[in-house]
Structure formats: C-alpha cells, structure tokens
Design a protein around this nucleic acid. Structure first.
Lengths: 206, 206
DNA sequence: GAAAAACTTGCAGTCAGTGCAAACTATTAA
DNA sequence: TTAATAGTTTGCACTGACTGCAAGTTTTTC
C-alpha cells in the first residue's frame, strides 16, 4: 500500500501531520496563546512527551513549516540559468513557495494567524534566520561573491522583508493578493528604494 | 541631589538599571541560556517577582533596550527637512542610535551577544516589529503616502534588514565597523539592489 | 521468532511567567 | 507630626513549557 518507506516512516509522517493539523486548528479556534500542548497532543492522540519529540515548541507545530520549501528554494538557486540576476532567482524561489502555500488555502489561514500573533511571527522569523543564512550562502556562491560580502546577504534579507511587508499589507487590505504585493516590493528593491538617497549632499548647515 | 522626580522614581530607575546590568553581565558570563531569572534578581537584590514587574521576559532585560532611541528616531522622522529623501531620514535615525550604542561600548558587547543567541535575536526582532510599525506610520505621513502603500513600509523594513546584515557581517569579520557596513547596505538599497531584475524578460522558453 | 533499533510514554524535575493578597514605603493632606 | 493614600515589593500558589531518564512497545532485521 504505502508507496515508499516502511510502516515506521509513514506513521511518523502521519503523527507529525496530525500534530500540526491539530495545532493549527486549535490555534485558529481558541487563539494561539490559549492552546496548550496538552490539548494538541490529546487531539492528535499522542502523549505530551511525544509532541516534544516532534516539535521543539508549540509555535513550531502551529507554523507547521514545510522543510521541503527551503530545499526547493536552495535547489532553484543552485540550478538557476547563468544569466539570471540574483533577485530574479530569489523571486522565482519565493513565488514557488507562495504558490504552494496558496494552493493549500493555507496562505491566508495560517498567514493571517501568524501575522496577528507576535509570538508566532517572531518564531517564524527565527526559523527564517537559519534559512536566510543558507540562502545567502547559496546565492553568494552563485554570484561568485566572497563569503563576507554585503550584496547577497542583503538581497536575501531584503527579500524576506518584502515578504513580511507584503503579508502585513495584505492583512490590512486583503484586496490585493500577496503575490502581487511581494512582486511590487521586489520591483522597488530592484530599482532602488530611494534613488534620492544621499546623506552627505543634503545637510545644508549646522 | 536627585535632579528630577521624587525618591520613588529614582529608585525605580535604579532598580531597572541594576536588573538590566546584572542580566547583561550574567548573560555574558554564563551564556544567555544558562542564566536564570532567579540569579538576575538575586544579583540585583530584589525578588524574582519584582523582576517581572520590570521586564516581561528574561531576554528583555538582557537586551536592555533604551526606549529613548525609538522616541528620538520618531522625532527625527517628524522634523526632517522637507527636501530630505526618506531613506536619508532613516539613515540619520539609525546612525544616531548606533552612535549612541557605540559610545557606551555597548554595541559590540551586547550586539555580539545578541547575534550569537537566537533567543535574544528573535526577541530583539520582536520588539523591532512594533518599532517598525510606528516608524512606518511616521515615515508614510512624512512622505504624504497613504497608509497601505508599500514604499514606506519597505523602506523601514529593509533598513532593519540592512542593520541586521551589517551586524552579522561585522560579527564574522570585525574589521569593518558596523556603521560603515550599514551605510553600504543603505547605499545598495537606495540605488537598487539588483538593477537587472526582470522576471518576465528572462525566461526564454517553457 | 528472537535480537536490535527506533519510537512512545510516564515521571520527576527545572524554569518561566501570572494573579493575588499581604506587607512595606514614599507621598500627600491635615 | 500624624494619618490616610497610593504605589511598590514580596511571598505563595499555580499553570504551562520543556528536558532527561528509564521503562515499555513496536517495527525492522536477520
């Protein structure tokens, strides 16, 4: 029946999914701060201790990140066509992930939940930190830049900022789709966010 | 002796400072994850309960943010000369804060500590979230942009990204001062981080 | 079918963080 | 100075997150 992996592995995936689902459902129902791990574990029919074998925190389960997304993004970076500009590469990677989330109908449900809870949001940002490091490394290599250079790091980090801003704006005014907002952000970043920037030319006096 | 405020107020400031100092010292000594609130409270000669009257979390005490910094930054936004470009305004605000931290010798000690501990870093980012909202609102108003527009939000958020990247790079290679790295980041953001960006022009086939 | 490896669970324990009520201390008014 | 008042500190009891350890179970492997 099971296509790949033994029974053991399938069961693990099942448990993980059950926990993540229960976590999201309960968080949406009761508000993320009013769910206890005990409830989540109970809903997924495992012990509390087992919950912590799968997730390091409650928040991690609620956020329910898909590890595959980072993998796919890294892959895209590495296999990008030679002439493609770095932000463009980044754009395709982001687009890919967002599309995937959207197709689940997850993007709105989960996204809104996350944006509305500081605890969740910072937990997400925290897990992004690690991603950003990996993405930066991959991008730097692709660009042929040395490890300590600013541009690749800033591209990755600013792209993250654009995504967050997009989600925030989307939450405030759901009219415009997230993807479009992200795209606008990328556009701005690409062309220059403030072409009149010039700290030393403007200070007339004093 | 006390210039302003009654004895009560002075005492509060004193206690707060004592707690923040103890928190930073102990965190540097033992690593941020191995300090307990009990130790901090003990070192500052107050009860654990009192600690929580001053700070919502352990991390908050370690980070020891100066609320004045946000105030000054907001002020700078509001009183910026009419012709000044938004990122430039942002730059002066950031510069102001960094200089202040540097003059204490705090920037390296605390900064490195923060960058090396995910818990601290995300706690810092969390408190930045709130700042970002306020700064965005102030900047949007200054720019005469409507509330939901992307540019001011992105400017603030990307500036934050630039600061984080600068600190990270500085930690990896302490040769270049943070301020210079931040400046480089701002420069890149201003001119355009990737002028060759163009998702739709590049995909030849498929 | 038995030994080995992986997974689950309960239990005991540490630590963070909160609400409450009592004790204490600065401030204010008389 | 004193008495009322308002703000602060503290202890206590409690919930809940999270960890290590030592059984138990279940899957895998031979």
């Amino acid at each position: 029946m099971g296509a790949e992996g033994g029974l053991r592995e399938r069961k693990k995936l099942q448990t993980r999914a059950a926990l993540a689902d229960a976590a999201l459902r309960l968080a949406l129902e009761k508000g993320p701060d009013h769910v206890t791990v005990e409830e989540i574990a109970e809903a997924a029919d495992v012990s509390v201790r087992t919950f912590f074998n799968y997730f390091p925190h409650k928040e991690h389960a609620i956020i329910g990140r898909n590890p595959e997304h980072l993998e796919r993004a890294l892959d895209r970076m590495r296999t990008a066509p030679a002439g493609e500009s770095p932000l463009t590469t980044m754009w395709y990677a982001v687009q890919d992930v967002l599309r995937d989330l959207e197709s689940d109908g997850e993007l709105s449900r989960r996204g809104e939940l996350i944006m509305s809870s500081p605890t969740l949001l910072y937990q997400l940002m925290l897990s992004s930190l690690d991603d950003e490091r990996q993405l930066t490394a991959a991008l730097a290599e692709r660009m042929g830049e040395p490890a300590g250079s600013t541009r690749p790091a800033l591209i990755v980090s600013a792209a993250g900022a654009a995504c967050r801003v997009a989600m925030e704006l989307h939450k405030a005014a759901p009219g415009r789709p997230v993807l479009e907002l992200v795209r606008e952000g990328f556009q701005l970043l690409a062309q220059g966010i403030d072409t009149a920037f010039g700290p030393d030319n403007e200070r007339g006096s004093s």
